[in-house]
Amino acid sequence: MTTSPSTARPPAQLILSTTEHFVAFGFGAGLSPWAPGTMGTLVAIPVFLAMSLMSPTVYAIAVAVLFIFGCWVCGESARLLGVHDYGGIVFDEIVGYLIAAAPLMLIEPASVGACAVGVAAAFVLFRVFDILKPWPIRWLDRRIHGGFGIMIDDVLAGVMAALLLWIALHFMRSM
Rank of each mutant, 00 (worst) to 15 (best):
S4L: 13
S4Q: 06
P5A: 14
A8V: 13
R9F: 09
R9G: 05
A12T: 03
L16F: 14
S17A: 14
T18C: 09
T19V: 15
H21V: 03
V23S: 10
F25W: 06
F27I: 01
F27T: 00
G28Y: 06
G28Q: 03
L31S: 11
S32I: 03
S32G: 11
G37Q: 09
T38W: 06
M39S: 04
M39E: 00
M39W: 06
G40L: 04
G40A: 09
V43H: 08
A44V: 02
P46N: 07
V47C: 14
F48P: 02
F48N: 01
L49M: 12
M51Y: 05
M51I: 00
S52W: 13
L53S: 11
L53C: 09
M54F: 15
I61R: 13
V63H: 08
V63S: 11
V63A: 13
V65L: 15
L66Q: 00
I68W: 14
G70N: 04
C71F: 08
W72M: 00
E76H: 10
L80K: 14
L80H: 08
L81G: 08
L81Q: 05
Y86R: 05
G87K: 12
F91L: 05
I94D: 01
G96F: 06
G96S: 08
G96C: 09
I99C: 08
A100Q: 03
A101S: 10
A102M: 08
P109E: 10
P109Y: 11
S111Y: 11
S111M: 08
G113I: 03
G113S: 13
A114H: 07
A116K: 01
G118Y: 02
A120V: 08
A121E: 00
A122I: 06
R127D: 01
V128M: 11
V128E: 04
F129L: 05
L132H: 01
K133T: 00
W135I: 01
W135F: 15
P136Y: 02
P136S: 03
I137A: 12
R138M: 12
W139S: 12
W139A: 12
L140T: 01
H145M: 14
G146L: 04
G147Y: 11
G147K: 10
F148I: 02
F148Y: 05
G149H: 03
I150N: 10
I150G: 12
M151F: 09
I152A: 09
I152H: 07
D153G: 10
V155W: 13
L156P: 10
A161K: 05
L165H: 10
W166C: 12
W166D: 03
I167G: 07
A168H: 06
H170G: 13
R173G: 04
R173Y: 02
R173H: 05
R173S: 09
M175K: 14
